[in-house]
Nucleic acid binder design. Structure first.
Length: 562
RNA sequence: GGCGACGUAGCUCAGCGGUCAGAGCGGGCGCUUCAUAAGCGCUAGGUCACUGGUUCGAACCCAGUCGUCGCCA
C-alpha cells in the first residue's frame, strides 16, 4: 500500500548564494529521500522556499542601499535555477514573501492568541533617535563589557565570543547613524513555550528512531527548561501582526519561517487541484513528515515548531523524523561567505555536471559527523570510483553488447550458477538499499549499490564474454543479458543519488519514459530488459577530470570577488 | 566560564561492549584486454589521540589530559 510522505527542507536565507555546505547539509539528502519514495510508488510532497524576512536580508539591503525585495528578487530565482540544475526535485520551492504565507501565519498567530498561548509583555529595547526606530540587536555596536573590544555587536562580541544584550555594551552606537541609542520599552508577543515542556519531553522520548545526535541534543535542550520567547520584533520588513495598533512590528522569523512548511503545502494545493490536497499531507496521521535540516536548526524543528503545532491544535502532524546532518568543511576550513571560502553552487554548475558532485556529497555526506570536501577528493572519487567502477561497467557491457549483438539485448540461454548468484546478490542489494534509504542511511545505501557494481565487474571477469563469444555465442549472450538486467537494477538503486546519469542509462537500455515511472521492484526491473529489445548507441556516462582541476579550483578559493 | 561533539590504516570515512578492527581509494605483486590505461585476484599498512578505571571482555562505557570544532550564559 502506498505511503504518503511529507518532506520539509530548511529554508535558505535569500541574502547570498548557495554553497556546497547548504547542499550537503540538507538539500541533497532530502532529494535522495524524495526520489526514493517516488520510485517506491509513494506519494511525496517536498517543499521549501526562500526565507525572505531575516535580519541578514535587511542588513544586506541597507548595506547596498536597495530594498529587501531587490535582494530577494536577486537570489530567489538563482536558488530555483540551482535546484533545477542540481536536480533537487522540489514539488514547490516558494518564499516566505507571499500573500498565502502571510495568511497562514496570521491564522497560526490568531489561533494561538485565542487559545492563550501568546501573551503580551514589555521589553527594553535599543531605540535610535536619529533613525527614529528600534534597532535589532546586531544593529548596535559598542565596547564589550567583558574584554573591552570596541566594536562588539549587540548580540555577540566578535573578539571574545561572548553573547551580549545591547544594554550590556559600553558606549552603544547605532551602526547606521552612529548616534547613541536609548533604551525604551516596547510591547511584544511571547510564545508560551514553557507550557509545552512536559508534552514535548513525553513526545520526544517516544522518537527512538531519531538519529542519536538529534535526540540527545533535543533532550538536553528540554532538560535545561524552556523559556517563553518573544515572537515579534520592532521591524518594518516581515509578516505584520494581524491586530490593529502594531504597525511598527512584525512577526519574527523563527516563528514565521517554520510556518512556511505548512503554508508551502497550502500553496502547492492551490496550484495543483482543489486547494484541499495539502490536508492529506498534514492531517492524515498515517502520513509521515520528515524535516531535512542542518544541525544548527535542530531546536527549531524538534521543539519550537512542534510546540507551535501542539498549540494550534487541529490535528496537524508533528514531525516523524528530523534527519539533521552535521557540517561540511571545505579544504579543512569552515565555509565563510565573507571570505569567499566557499564553492558556490551556481558557479560549480557552470563548469561541471551535477552527478559527480551528488556522488561525492552522498558517499561523503556529514550524516553522523562532520566531513570535509576537498577538490582533490572530488577529482579522485570521480575518476577512481564513479568513472571506474560504475561508469566503466555500464560502458563495457553496453558497448560490447551493442556492437556484437545487433544493437539489441542478446538472447539468453539458461542461467548457470554464477548467473543465479549474481541475480540473488542484486535482489539482496535492492532489499538492503531499500531499508537503508527508508531509514535515511544514505551513505550505507550508496556504498551498498556500488558494491553491487563491483560484483558485476567480478562476474564479467569470471565469464569473460570477450572470450566466449569466439567459441560459444550463447554463453556470451547469457552473460551480457544477465549483466544488463542487473545494470537495470543498479540504475534504480543509483537513481536517487545520480538522477541525470540514471536517466541517460535508462535511454541507452532502450527503455521509454523516465526511471521514476518504473517501480522499485527487482522482478519488474529484470523483466524490463527482454532479449531482442533494441538498445541505443551508448556513450560513457561520466568523464574523468584532469588533475589540473584541483589546482584551478583551489586557486579560486578565498579570492575576493569584489 | 558551562555544555557538547570529534580525534580509527598514506587519504576520505564506516564501526560505537564480544569471531584475527573494516570499506573505498592509494602502495606492492600477479591475471586480464570487452571497457574512459578501465576490470579482477593476492598482499602490505593501524599501541582505534594519550593516561587511568569499570568489565570475564572496550575503539566502543566512566574519569582525567592534549588537540580540533561547535552551542550556550
Amino acid at each position: 500500500m502506498p505511503e504518503r510522505i511529507f518532506i520539509g527542507v530548511a529554508w535558505p536565507y535569500a541574502n547570498g548564494p548557495l554553497h556546497l555546505g547548504h547542499v550537503a547539509g540538507c538539500y541533497l539528502s532530502a532529494d535522495i529521500f524524495a526520489r526514493y519514495h517516488r520510485a517506491k510508488g509513494n506519494e511525496v510532497l517536498m517543499v521549501s522556499g526562500s526565507d525572505s524576512h531575516g535580519t541578514p536580508i535587511t542588513v544586506r539591503a541597507e548595506a547596498e542601499g536597495v530594498t529587501p525585495e531587490e535582494i530577494l528578487n536577486r537570489y530567489h530565482p538563482q536558488f530555483v535555477d540551482s535546484w533545477d540544475k542540481l536536480g533537487i526535485s522540489f514539488d514547490l520551492f516558494t518564499s516566505t514573501h507571499t500573500e498565502n504565507h502571510q495568511e497562514v501565519v496570521h491564522d497560526l498567530f490568531s489561533v494561538l492568541l485565542e487559545r492563550g498561548y501568546l501573551y503580551e509583555q514589555a521589553m527594553l529595547l535599543a531605540y535610535c533617535p536619529d533613525c527614529q526606530r528600534f534597532l535589532p540587536d546586531r544593529y548596535v555596536n559598542g565596547t564589550c563589557p567583558h574584554c573591552g573590544f570596541e566594536r562588539a555587536r549587540g548580540d555577540q562580541c566578535d573578539n571574545c565570543g561572548r553573547t551580549l544584550d545591547p544594554q550590556d555594551l559600553i558606549q552603544p552606537r547605532c551602526v547606521i547613524s552612529n548616534s547613541e541609542p536609548d533604551f525604551r520599552e516596547s510591547e511584544h508577543f511571547f510564545l508560551k513555550l514553557s507550557a509545552f515542556e512536559k508534552p514535548l519531553l513525553d513526545w520526544v522520548n517516544q522518537q527512538t528512531h531519531w538519529r542519536p545526535n538529534v535526540l540527545n541534543f533535543t533532550r538536553r535542550f528540554l532538560e535545561d527548561g524552556l523559556k517563553d520567547r518573544a515572537i515579534t520584533r520592532d521591524l518594518t520588513w516581515g509578516v505584520p501582526i494581524p491586530l490593529d495598533g502594531y504597525e511598527g512590528k512584525r512577526i519574527y522569523v523563527w516563528f514565521e519561517a517554520v510556518s512556511g512548511y505548512l503554508s508551502a503545502a497550502v500553496e502547492w494545493a492551490k496550484l495543483h487541484g482543489d486547494g484541499k490536497s495539502w490536508e492529506a499531507f498534514w492531517k492524515d496521521p498515517d502520513t509521515k513528515a520528515y524535516y531535512f535540516i542542518g544541525k544548527d536548526n535542530i531546536p527549531f524543528h524538534t521543539i519550537i515548531w512542534p510546540a507551535i503545532l501542539m498549540a494550534y491544535g487541529g490535528g496537524l502532524n508533528l514531525p516523524y523524523d528530523v534527519p539533521a546532518n552535521e557540517f561540511l568543511s571545505l579544504e579543512d576550513r569552515k565555509f565563510s561567505t565573507s571570505e569567499n571560502w566557499a564553492v558556490w553552487v551556481h558557479d560549480y554548475l557552470s563548469r561541471y555536471d551535477p552527478d559527480p558532485l551528488r556522488y561525492l556529497l552522498s558517499i561523503n555526506m556529514p550524516e553522523s559527523g562532520d566531513t570535509n570536501f576537498s577538490w582533490a577528493e572530488f577529482v579522485r572519487r570521480n575518476n577512481e570510483e564513479l568513472v571506474a567502477t560504475f561508469g566503466n561497467l555500464v560502458h563495457r557491457v553496453l558497448s560490447f553488447t551493442y556492437r556484437n549483438f545487433d544493437e539489441k539485448v542478446p538472447p539468453a540461454g539458461p542461467p548457470g550458477d554464477l548467473e543465479q548468484e549474481l541475480l540473488q546478490s542484486a535482489r539482496e542489494a535492492m532489499d538492503s538499499v531499500d531499508r537503508d534509504l527508508r531509514d535515511c542511511h544514505f551513505k550505507a545505501a550508496i556504498g551498498r549499490a556500488f558494491s553491487l557494481a563491483q560484483q558485476v565487474n567480478r562476474y564479467l571477469d569470471a565469464r569473460a564474454p570477450w572470450q566466449s563469444i569466439k567459441t560459444d555465442r550463447t554463453e556470451a549472450a547469457t552473460t551480457l543479458y544477465t549483466a544488463t538486467t542487473v545494470i537495470n537494477c543498479l540504475k534504480m538503486l543509483l537513481y536517487p543519488f545520480l538522477p541525470f546519469s540514471a536517466q541517460r542509462l535508462h535511454e541507452y537500455l532502450g527503455l521509454e519514459g523516465t526511471v521514476e515511472s518504473l517501480s522499485w521492484d527487482f522482478d519488474a526491473l529484470i523483466d524490463a530488459v527482454q532479449p531482442g529489445n533494441p538498445l541505443r548507441q551508448p556513450s560513457p556516462l561520466y568523464t574523468k577530470f584532469d588533475p589540473q582541476v584541483v589546482d584551478d579550483e583551489v586557486q579560486r578559493l578565498g579570492v575576493s570577488v569584489a
